[in-house]
Nucleic acid binder design. Structure first.
Length: 645
DNA sequence: GTTTCGGTTCTTTTT
DNA sequence: GAACCGAAAC
C-alpha cells in the first residue's frame, strides 16, 4: 500500500501530534482545528507503522464518533484497521465484563438497564419502602443523584446532601432506596449504565491478573473528548495504559459540557502532572469558521476563569459577521428562521447546510409545528430515544427474558401486554416462579399459563411457541428472528388495538427488524439496544434519513458536528443559560455550551433572542436577552430588530 | 382487588 | 407524548 502523505494532508500542528513518538501524549485541540482528522491519521499512522490494529484501543463518547473515525481510517489504510477496538467507554467495559463478570459475582448473561428500566426499578424500590408520593423525590431525581455519586465515587449520602441541601427530605430514606436498588439489580442480574463503568474499574482494581492481560494486549490507547471523562473513566484508562504508557488523549477543556454526569475537566488539566513525561501539542488553527464567528467564540469564552490558554486562529477569509436578531416571541422566531432558510436556499445553500440548535428539546416546539404546517421537511435528534419508546421495548422484552431469565422488568412488561393482566398479576406470578422464568422449560410455561387470567392464555400460547423455536432452531444466534416472530404472532395485533398512531409505530418496528438482521448474538443485540439509545444521532441506518433537510438538534448532540449556517434559538436568560444551571452554579458550563454552539457554524451564525415567552398558565413573560449575547462586544455583531423594543 | 380509561401536567443536557 | 392520578368497569 502506498504511504500516506502526511505533509500534504495535515498542517504542522496536526502533523506533529500525529507523528508523536511513543509515550504519553496530550493534544489540546480547540474547536474546528481538525481534532478528528488528527486522531484518524494517528490511527492510520500506527497501522502503517506495523502496529496490529487488534492491539489498538480507541475510546470515544458516542458510537457515531467511533464509527466515523474508523471509516475514515479505513479510507487511509484499508482493511489494516479491521479488528481495532473502537467504541464508547460503556461498550468497552461491557465487552470486558461479558468475559470476566463472574469474578464480580454476575452471570455473563446480565441485562443492561437503560434509563427507563432504571427508573422503573427505582420506583419499585421506593414503593416497597412505602416512600412513594408525599415529600419524596421522583425516581428520575433519585437516579441522577445515585448516578452522580457513582461517577464521582462519592457516598450516596454526600451526593444527596449536596443535591437536596436543606429541603425537608430524609437523606436516610434516599440512602435506603439506593441500597434496595442495588440489591434488586443484583437479583435481576442486571447492570445500569453506571455499573458498567464502576464494575469495569472494579475488575481492574481487584483482579490484577485480568488487568495484566489487557495491559499486555493493548499497545496503544487513544481517547477522544478527554475533557468529558469522569474520575472512573480516567482511572480505568490510567490503569489500562500503565504498562505500555502509549496513551494519547485529545480534548478541549473549553468544550467540557458533561459535568452534570460526573465529567471533570481536571482530568485533562492534570494530565501533564500525572504524566510528567507527556508531550503536549496544541491545535489552534481553525479551518471551519469565518473570522467573525471565531471572534464571538473567543469573546464569550474569555468570560470563563482560565483553563488551558488558547485562542482560535482563523485561516478563512472574512465573511458575514454573526447576526443578533431580536423578535417578539417563539412564533416570530420560527417564521424568521423559515424565511431566512428559504432565502439561503435561493442563494445556493442546501437545506442540509443549515442547523437550528437549542439548549433543551422543548425549545424547538414552535419551530417544529411551523415547519410541519408549511410542509418543510426536517430531521430532529429527538428527545425520545428510539430504543426507549414503549413499542420498541415491548417487542424486545421476550428476547430479554429468554437471554436473562432473572429479568423481572422484562417479565412484567411481557405479561402486562396480555388482556386482563397488569402489574399486580405479573408480580404475583413472578413470586410463584421464585423470581426466575425459564421460558425454555415447558413445565414453567405451563405454570405461568395456569396462573394467567383466562383471557390471556391464548396470547401466552403464541409466546410459548416462539420459545420452543428459540431452543429448537437455535435462535439465540438469530435474535432478529425472535423479534420478528413476536411481532407477527402477537404484537402487531396488540399494537393496532392499543395505539392511536399504529402506522408510525409500525414503521419503527419495521426499521427495528431491518436493524436486527445483522446481529448473530442475542446478548450483543440487547447490549447495543441499551447503549445506543439515540439511534438517529448515532447511526443513520435505521430510519432512512433524507439527506437534504434542515437539521434540528440540541447543542449537546451537535458537538463535533458542523454546518455552514447555524441558528441558535431561545437565547434568553433562563432558557440559555438555563435558570436551573445558574441556580446550581453552573454558569461556566453553560458558557462552554454556548461556545460549543457558536463554533459549529462555518459561514453564518444567527443568534436569536425572543423577547417574550409563554408561561405554563397561558400568560406571557418578558425575558432578558441571554447574558452570553450581551457579553459579546457589540461591534462584533450585526443587528436585526424585529421586536417591539 | 385489578385493570382500564380518561383526564391533566410537564418537559436540560446523555451513555 | 408519557407519566400521573382518580374513577369506572370487570
Amino acid at each position: 500500500m502506498a504511504g500516506i502523505n502526511f505533509s500534504e494532508a495535515l498542517n504542522e500542528e496536526q502533523r506533529a501530534a500525529v507523528l508523536a513518538p511513543d509515550g504519553p501524549v496530550l493534544v489540546i485541540a480547540a474547536a474546528g482545528t481538525g481534532k478528528t482528522r488528527t486522531l484518524t491519521f494517528r490511527v492510520a499512522h500506527l497501522v502503517e507503522r506495523g502496529v496490529d490494529a487488534q492491539r489498538i484501543l480507541l475510546l470515544t463518547f458516542t458510537n457515531r464518533a467511533a464509527r466515523e473515525m474508523l471509516e475514515r481510517a479505513r479510507g487511509l489504510v484499508g482493511e489494516g484497521v479491521s479488528g481495532l477496538w473502537g467504541g464508547t467507554f460503556h461498550h468497552m467495559a461491557n465487552r470486558m465484563l461479558r468475559r470476566h463478570c463472574e469474578a464480580l459475582g454476575y452471570k455473563t448473561d446480565y441485562t443492561i438497564l437503560d434509563q427507563d428500566d432504571a427508573r422503573n426499578l427505582v420506583r419499585a424500590c421506593a414503593d416497597e419502602l412505602d416512600l412513594l408520593g408525599k415529600h419524596f423525590p421522583k425516581p428520575d431525581v433519585l437516579l441522577s443523584v445515585y448516578s452522580l455519586a457513582a461517577n464521582r465515587e462519592q457516598p450516596v449520602e454526600a451526593a444527596a446532601e449536596a443535591h437536596f441541601g436543606h429541603h425537608p427530605i430524609d437523606l436516610k430514606d434516599v440512602v435506603k432506596v439506593h441500597a434496595r436498588y442495588r440489591e434488586r439489580k443484583r437479583s435481576l442480574n442486571a447492570m445500569d449504565f453506571d455499573d458498567l463503568l464502576v464494575n469495569g474499574l472494579l475488575l481492574f482494581r481487584e483482579h490484577p491478573d485480568i488487568l495484566a492481560r489487557y495491559q499486555e494486549h493493548f499497545l496503544h490507547i487513544l481517547v477522544d473528548e478527554y475533557q468529558d471523562t469522569n474520575c472512573i473513566q480516567a482511572e480505568w484508562v490510567d490503569r489500562l495504559a500503565a504498562r505500555r504508557r502509549n496513551l494519547l488523549v485529545v480534548g478541549d477543556d473549553f468544550q467540557s459540557i458533561y459535568s452534570w454526569r460526573g465529567a471533570d475537566f481536571r482530568n485533562i488539566l492534570g494530565f501533564p502532572k500525572r504524566y510528567p513525561d507527556a508531550t503536549v501539542f496544541k491545535l489552534e488553527t481553525n479551518y471551519r469558521s469565518v473570522p467573525g464567528i471565531l471572534d464571538v467564540a473567543n469573546a464569550c469564552i474569555a468570560g470563563n476563569p482560565e483553563q488551558f490558554q488558547k485562542t482560535l486562529r482563523a485561516v478563512r477569509e472574512d465573511g458575514r459577521r454573526p447576526v443578533r436578531v431580536e423578535m417578539r416571541g417563539g412564533e416570530e422566531q420560527a417564521s424568521y428562521i423559515i424565511e431566512r432558510a428559504m432565502a439561503l436556499g435561493r442563494e445556493g445553500y442546501r437545506m442540509s447546510d443549515i442547523a437550528v440548535l437549542y439548549r433543551a428539546h422543548y425549545h424547538a416546539l414552535e419551530l417544529q409545528l411551523e415547519l410541519a404546517r408549511q410542509h418543510i421537511p426536517f430531521d430532529i435528534t429527538s428527545g425520545v430515544r428510539f430504543f426507549e419508546q414503549a413499542h420498541i421495548k415491548d417487542v424486545c422484552s421476550l428476547l430479554r427474558l429468554l437471554v436473562n431469565p432473572s429479568d423481572e422488568l422484562a417479565f412484567v412488561r411481557l405479561l402486562g401486554m396480555f388482556p386482563k393482566t397488569g402489574p399486580r398479576t405479573a408480580a404475583r406470578i413472578w413470586e410463584l416462579l421464585d423470581h426466575r422464568c425459564e421460558l425454555k422449560d415447558a413445565a414453567v410455561a405451563d405454570r405461568v399459563r395456569d396462573k394467567l387470567p383466562q383471557a390471556a392464555r391464548a396470547s401466552w400460547k403464541d409466546i410459548v411457541e416462539i420459545c420452543r423455536a428459540y431452543e429448537k432452531e437455535k435462535l439465540s444466534g438469530d435474535p432478529g428472528e425472535v423479534i420478528y416472530r413476536f411481532i407477527n404472532a402477537f404484537y402487531d395485533e396488540y399494537a393496532v388495538e392499543t395505539f392511536e398512531n399504529y402506522d408510525r409505530r409500525r414503521e419503527d418496528l419495521d426499521a427495528l427488524i431491518d436493524f436486527t438482521t445483522k446481529y448473530t448474538s442475542a446478548e450483543e443485540l440487547l447490549a447495543d439496544a441499551a447503549l445506543m439509545s439515540n439511534l438517529d444521532a448515532e447511526t443513520d441506518e435505521i430510519r432512512g434519513t433524507d439527506d437534504n433537510v434542515l437539521k434540528l438538534s440540541t447543542v449537546h448532540q451537535a458537538k463535533g458536528l458542523e454546518w455552514r449556517v447555524v441558528f441558535l434559538i431561545w437565547l434568553a436568560d433562563g432558557m440559555f443559560p438555563s435558570s436551573r444551571s445558574i441556580n446550581e452554579g453552573g454558569e461556566g458550563e453553560e458558557r462552554r455550551l454556548f461556545y460549543v454552539a457558536t463554533t459549529r457554524a462555518r459561514d453564518q451564525l444567527y443568534l436569536c433572542a425572543p423577547q417574550l415567552r409563554r408561561t405554563r398558565d397561558g400568560g406571557v413573560m418578558l425575558c432578558q436577552p441571554s447574558r452570553f449575547i450581551e457579553e459579546v462586544p457589540s461591534d462584533l455583531l450585526e443587528r436585526e430588530d424585529l421586536g417591539f423594543m
